[in-house]
Design a protein around this nucleic acid. Sequence first.
RNA 1: GGCGGCGUACCCAAGCGGCUAAGGGGGAGGUCUGCAAAACCUUUAUGCGCCGGUUCAAAUCCGGCCGCCGCCUCCA
Length: 485
Amino acid sequence: MGLKIYNTMSGRKEAFVPVEGNKVRMYVCGVTVYDLCHVGHARSAIVFDAISRYLRFRGYGVTFAKNFTDIDDKIINRAIEAGKTWDEIAATYTREYYEDMARLGVANPDIEPKATGHIAEMLDIIGKLMDKGYAYETGDGVYYEVGKFAGYGMLSKRDLESMEAGARVEIDPKKRSHFDFALWKRSKEGEPAWDSPWGAGRPGWHIECSAMSLKHLGETFDIHGGGADLIFPHHENEIAQSCAATGKPFAKYWIHNGFITIDKEKMSKSLGNFFTIRDILQEFDPEVLRVFLLSTHYRSPIEFSRESLRQTEPSMDRVYSTVLRMGDFLSSFKEKARPSKDDADFSIIAGSFRDKFVEAMDDDFNTAAAVATIFDIIREINRYLDKKPASPETKLLIEKAAGDIKECAGVLNIFVKTPQQWYQSLLAAHKADIKEPEIEELIIKRRQARQDKDWKLADEIRDALDSKGIILEDKEYGTIWKVKV
RNA sequence: GGCGGCGUACCCAAGCGGCUAAGGGGGAGGUCUGCAAAACCUUUAUGCGCCGGUUCAAAUCCGGCCGCCGCCUCCA
C-alpha cells in the first residue's frame, strides 16, 4: 500500500505517483498580506505544512512553494485607510504572518515567491495568451476569454452555460462573458502600476499563481493546494491560463482543505465571524491550536470554539505526562528481572505503532487517525510501565517507543516540546496567578509537612495551589507540579 | 436555479461493503495512594438523521425524505 490522495479534479482518492521519479513539486496558494491572519489561514498553513513534512518523511524530495499576494485591491484600499503606501502594508503583514507561522510550528516553504517579484513572468504569459487568441484587450485592461478554453470548469465541475444562468452579478458590458477575468488591470491615477505592452497597470489575481508556479516548479508539477474556496474561480482560472499558455497539463493532484466554521457558518473576513491567530494565542498554547486542527481530517469542516480547544488541552497533557514518565523511568532504570511476557506483549504492540501511523497518513493524510495512533501507543506505554517492568529488554523497548513517538509526532510537528516546556507554556497561557519559583517554594514547604506527617498542612498547601490552577503529583522521587487543564 | 459536501454516543471525531462501530474529552464504578493527582481496569451507540431498496453481509452502495453548510462575488 502506498500513499493515496483525494484529488479534487477526479473527485476520488488516487494512488500518488509523482510526475518525475520521487520528486514532488507542490504549490500552495498563500495569503494576501493586507491584514492579520485568522484561524482559517492557520488551518490551511498547518495542513499543507503537515503534508509537506509527511511527503519528506516518506522519502520524497519535496520542493514546496507558497506565494504571497503582495499587490491587489484589498492592499491598496487598506493602504489608503491607513495613510500608508501599499508596499508598507504588504511588508507589515508579511512580517506578522511570519510571526504567526513561527509560533504555530509552520515551517517556511522552500520557495516563497511574491507577486510583485514576477511581473515580467506574468506579462510573458499574458503575451502568449494574446498571441494564441485566449485573451483580449478592453479599455480596462486585458481579459481571459473563458469560452475559448475547452476544459473550463473541469476542476469545479461546472459549465459556463449553467453558471451564466445563475449569475448573480451584473455583467460588465466590456467583457465578452461575465466569467472572463482580468489578466492585467490598467491603473488609474495614483494607483501602483507597472509598465506593460497593454498600458501601465497591475496584474489580475489569478495570473500570479500561474506565473510563479510555472517559473519555480515547471509547466507540469505534482500538487496544487489551497482552501476549498479557491477551487472556483481561482484554481479554475489558473488551469485555464496555464494550460492555454503552455499547452501542457498543469497540476496533477489538487488538494483543498475544508473551512473553519463559527456557529456552522464559514469563518470569513466579510462575515466578521473570525478569530485571528493572535486572538487565540493569547489564551492557548500554539500547539493546542495545531493539535486541534490536525485532529480533524483536512477536508472536513471544523466548527471552531474555545470549548473545543479546551477539550484538546487535557488530551495533550496526557501525552506529555507519559513523555515525562518515560524520561523519569529511563533515568532511574535498574535492571533486575528476566524478560517476561509483558515485555513480549509490549514489544509487539509498540512495534506496530509506526506502521499504523503511516497507514493512517497514507490514507489521504488522515491526521485525525494518525493522532489517534499516538494516543493508542501512549496508553500501551502506561499500561506496560504500570507493571513495573525491569528486564534487559525494558529499557530498549521504552527507548524505542519514545523515539518512534518523537519521530511520528514530529512529522505533524506536535508533541515536540519537553514536558517542562509544556507546563510552563500552559502556566502562561492560563495566566495563572502564580509564578514558578513560588510553586517550587510551596512544594518544598509541603515536603517538610509530609515528612512530619502533618497531612493537614500538606493538604492545605495543595489546595491553595489547586485554587490557582496548579496540580501537584507526588511521585517516588518527589513532587512535581502541573497546570490544571 | 446549477454544482459539491455534511448529519456517528453527553461533547469532539475516525471509519466509506465483512472482525465485538477507532481515538480524545466528560460521567459512573474500581485498583493504586497518608489523602490526592496521574496511570491503569470496567462501564457509558444492539447503534451510525429518517424511510425504503440492493447484497450472504451496509454508517459504509442505490432511491426518496428531513435538517445543515459551502461554491457559483473577494475569500484559506
